[in-house]
Design a protein around this nucleic acid. Sequence first.
DNA 1: CAAATATGCAACCATAAGGTTGCATATTTG
DNA 2: CAAATATGCAACCTTATGGTTGCATATTTG
Lengths: 105, 105
Amino acid sequence: MSQAAIAQIFKALGDPVRLQIVQRLSNGAALCMGELSKDLGISRQGARKQIQALVSAKVVQLHPAGREVKVQLDSAALQQGRDFITALEAQWDQRLLALKQFTEQ
Amino acid sequence: MSQAAIAQIFKALGDPVRLQIVQRLSNGAALCMGELSKDLGISRQGARKQIQALVSAKVVQLHPAGREVKVQLDSAALQQGRDFITALEAQWDQRLLALKQFTEQ
DNA sequence: CAAATATGCAACCATAAGGTTGCATATTTG
DNA sequence: CAAATATGCAACCTTATGGTTGCATATTTG
């Protein structure tokens, strides 16, 4: 996984509106664009742009169905983000441990 | 933890330069601004602005020491980010399970 | 003390982001 | 078929972002 791709995932999650969209998707049943765009405090077209940002970061996938378009969460992106943080934390803990051992000598 | 604060953490991680800074910090010993600003492909002042973004998101803390300023990772922010993703994944898995049970009837 | 070092701050610039409005287009449905 | 519904696309505006340069300031060090 490239650094840039990871950054894109985090960037996609780095906005309150998009975060709410992702949360709704993880919560309930499959939602279409229209449903998803409601109650975000912005226009449908504004919401569309945010959803597109999630698509570009591959956090979400679009599935056309008739005149609707279903929006589906891609949990792989979430996992990649989580894995990256986990790796950082592991390095950090290791560093703290080494520091502790050093000072205890 | 407010939605906005979480979004800010992800936003801070959502840039290749900042991601690299965080990685360096999790890796090695405590670094000062100057060290941290090297080899990022941008000027010192440019790097400074990125570090400031990390400070604002509380991903990193500054500790002045003489004429230097040490930059330290705040692992709490990482954990908050990871926890948020973990919660999303849990909801998602639960939803998938419910769907599976529904189709199996 | 003077020179070197580490940093800070402000102005500036180009581009990206977040949002809007208006209009076009495909698909249902009565 | 006509009306309603769900969506797409483009232009536009304002503000944020990522970066630069130039200069000021504090701390070491010879």
